[in-house]
C-alpha cells in the first residue's frame, strides 16, 4: 500500500492524522479518496506540492502512485 504523509498545515483537515496507507493507481485517484474521507481537503491539497517517491510535483494529476510509493504533501515552493 502507498504511504501518504501530511505536514502540519494539513492536519486540521485530517483530524490530526499524520499518515495513512491506501491503494490507488494515480494521484487523481488519491485526491478523490482523500476528499471522500475528509471532505474539503482537496482545496488545500491542490495548493500544496506533493512528493511521490522523492520527486516533487507542483500539479501532479497524471502521476502514477505505486503500491510501495511514498507520498509526501508539502508547502509549495516559489523562488526568486
Amino acid at each position: 500500500m502507498a504511504r501518504v504523509v501530511f505536514p502540519e498545515h494539513l492536519l486540521r483537515h485530517t483530524g490530526g492524522q499524520r499518515e495513512l496507507e491506501l491503494f490507488v493507481d494515480n494521484y487523481r485517484e488519491l485526491l478523490a479518496v482523500l476528499e471522500e474521507r475528509w471532505p474539503g481537503i482537496r482545496g488545500p491539497l491542490n495548493k500544496s506540492a506533493v512528493a511521490i517517491d522523492g520527486q516533487i510535483y507542483q500539479g501532479a494529476f497524471l502521476e502514477p502512485v505505486h503500491a510501495d510509493s511514498e507520498v509526501f504533501f508539502m508547502a509549495r515552493i516559489e523562488g526568486g
Binding site: 505536514p7 512528493a51 517517491d53 522523492g54 520527486q55 516533487i56 509526501f72 508539502m74 508547502a75
Partner: peptide
C-alpha cells in the same frame, strides 16, 4: 529523508 518530507533523489 529530507526534513521537508521526501527522500532525496
Amino acid at each position: 529523508q529530507a526534513p521537508y518530507g521526501p527522500k532525496f533523489p
